[in-house]
Design a protein around this nucleic acid. Structure first.
Length: 125
DNA sequence: AGCTTGCAGCGTCAGAGCTT
DNA sequence: AAGCTCTGACGCTGCAAGCT
């Protein structure tokens, strides 16, 4: 008899999706299924925190500060995009293997149905 | 060899949603 | 409200395969 294969229970990060932010865990209903927020990442190496606003003086420093902020944002976004793509690939792989498993299961069920039909259908001779 | 096409990966921007 | 994170969309680049 067919049993529910353990592997078919594998889900690709389906709901409830939990977003982990720092040490808190929050339910998020409308997040893409593959998205599990990682804990806040440390600053990439080589990134120096900007000076506090109080230490800024002329327009030169303000411009430098703006540039620094932009570069930091771009760098963080670059990393975030990489991580996002990695997760998405993982999610798609997971879905693909689930499809493969379900196709096999479906085929077995169809075969079983045919067998049962043969057994229980009234004979006409 | 040179050209074309399809694919994968990357960086950036914009916008939505979440956090502080 | 401001700042942050995540992700879809877009354009660019490099590579491999197929074609002429």
């Amino acid at each position: 008899m067919l049993s529910t294969d353990g592997a078919t229970r594998a889900v690709c990060m389906q709901k409830p999706i939990m977003a982990v932010t720092g040490d808190e865990t929050v339910a998020t209903g409308d997040m893409p299924a593959y998205q599990i927020r990682a804990p806040a990442t440390a600053l990439p190496q080589g990134v120096v925190m900007a000076a506090s606003p109080g230490s800024l003086h002329g327009p030169q420093q303000l411009a430098e500060e703006a540039t620094r902020k932009r570069e930091l944002r771009l760098m963080k976004n670059r990393e975030a995009a990489k991580e996002c793509r990695r997760r998405k690939k993982e999610y798609v792989k997971c879905l693909e293997s689930r499809v493969a498993i379900l196709e096999v299961q479906n085929k077995k069920l169809i075969e079983e149905l045919e067998t049962l039909k043969d057994i229980y259908s009234p004979k006409t001779d």
